[in-house]
């Protein structure tokens, strides 16, 4: 049983770190500000969730898992709020979304 949990949590951790790296690559590759927001979204949704899930499986039922769930809730609530605040203030600050095609 322990081995199964270890394997699942290892898969979660590796997958989460892969998503974090992909989000970082997207942050570099994307052409304009608003598309970079989506890349940052990949890092802080599934990347963060999978890493926290992997750690949660290792922690078992203890105070540590409660704190991990609190970090998860904190990231899940503050992440989109910060992204929306960024997008809105960039729009008001004069950054125009780039259209690659017209429609």
């Amino acid at each position: 049983m322990n081995v199964v949990i270890d394997i699942v949590s290892a898969v979660c951790l590796i997958g989460g770190s892969a998503f974090v790296v992909i989000g970082g690559i997207g942050l570099i590759r994307m052409p304009d500000f608003f598309t970079r927001l989506h890349a940052a979204g990949v890092c802080e949704t599934l990347g963060a969730w999978l890493v926290l899930l992997g750690l949660l499986l290792q922690a078992g039922w203890s105070m540590v898992s409660v704190k991990l769930i609190m970090i998860f809730l904190m990231l899940a609530i503050t992440g989109p709020t910060a992204t929306h605040a960024l997008a809105k203030s960039a729009l008001h600050g004069g950054v125009k979304p780039k259209h690659l095609d017209d429609n």
Partner: peptide, 26 residues
Amino acid sequence: YANSITLTPGTVSIDLRGHEIEVHAL
């Protein structure tokens, strides 16, 4: 609703006026 749109990568809500949300999609 707006937070769920933003939480889903690929769509970001960039403005909210009255009953309309302006969305930027990838």
